[in-house]
Design a protein around this nucleic acid. Structure first.
Lengths: 181, 181
DNA sequence: TTTATTTTGTAATGAACGATACAAATATAA
DNA sequence: TTATATTTGTATCGTTCATTACAAAATAAA
């Protein structure tokens, strides 16, 4: 149920998604939605966001089990380029929420910011470890490179809509991933 | 009048900005707004977006008059880092609009995309000219570097809200500007 | 099977929205 | 100064919104 709502929120954002659309998408009547999610539309959106946190945990585990976490991160970024056009246009629900909610809903904005910062921490930790192992030669501080990946992520999030094009996106992503070497 | 509306749209986006807020901000009653802008709220938003096109033209002229256009572009990016916290949180109305309007209003989305592409063209042209003059050694195609600046712009647009911090932003911007050398 | 509890869909509620009708006010033309 | 045209603010329109009240249906407990 949350996933159907997430799909809609992801595409249209919070404000532009109406409760009747959510009702149709989830197959649940308004009454059921409010019974299940006490906080109504806003709570449902929160749950949709939090869902991404769990996906992040999954990636964290994958990274922990990998013997080349940096390649895993790089592969993940590059894989974005080959996603569907719809995926490109949807972008990232976390980054989208930050843009939509600034000056509108501080709590939801901070919720999204927190997820992005956790992602950054994940990257930074992985980079630092690989620097210590000598697998990354670059002397740029790990926290700077971690933030760089977040900047890249947010940049691609918008570029994908301007150019939902595999080749262009791949080129841009690879160009920036060179910094981590 | 448009500028007061633009300020509001810029901060809150299209959907979250109500007509009564626009009325207060512009000092014009609803009747006056609809008399002046035949298309109502949507037309007023369009005008607010188009305003950025004119700002772009100004920058184009500045670039044309400069004997070191690349430094001008780089200085512009770096200057973003030192803007006010409010500016950081506002971000870029063009990039914001692309994120908000995908799947919602194709015309407004394309309007914003067009402005971003014009900006890209400006960058690419300047870079190509400087490459030919030998002022840029990098062999990366100008159109790739132009897109890189757009990606950076969009990335910073979101990073500014996560870290409305001069030092962090400056570091990230300078890190990426190294690619154009 | 009967009773109690929970879940569901529908219909109604009040508030806020964008848009407009219109008369008063202002500006322009004669 | 008078007559005409435009601009302005206010009050109102119809619509849509998120939310809730509630009765019917489904489920669980006895």
């Amino acid at each position: 149920m949350v996933l159907n709502a997430q799909e809609l929120f992801w595409k249209k954002g919070y404000n532009a998604t109406s409760l009747s659309e959510l009702s149709t998408a989830t197959g649940a009547g308004a009454g059921s939605l409010y019974n299940t999610f006490k906080g109504g539309k806003r709570e449902l959106f929160k749950k949709s966001l939090q869902q991404r946190k769990e996906d992040l945990e999954d990636f964290k585990i994958k990274l922990g089990n990998s013997d080349n976490p940096i390649e895993l991160i790089k592969a993940f970024f590059i894989s974005v380029a080959t996603e569907s056009k719809e995926s490109h246009l949807k972008g990232c629900i976390v980054a989208n929420t930050i843009v939509e909610m600034t000056f509108i809903d501080e709590e939801l904005e901070n919720e999204a910011i927190e997820i992005l910062k956790e992602t950054e921490k994940l990257y930074t930790t992985a980079i630092l470890a690989e620097q210590k192992k000598g697998n990354i030669k670059s002397k740029i501080p790990a926290h700077t490179l971690g933030k760089h990946l977040i900047t890249l992520w947010c940049g691609i999030n918008t570029l994908r809509r301007v150019y939902p094009d595999k080749e262009i996106l791949k080129q841009q992503i690879e160009l920036q991933l060179q910094l981590i070497n």
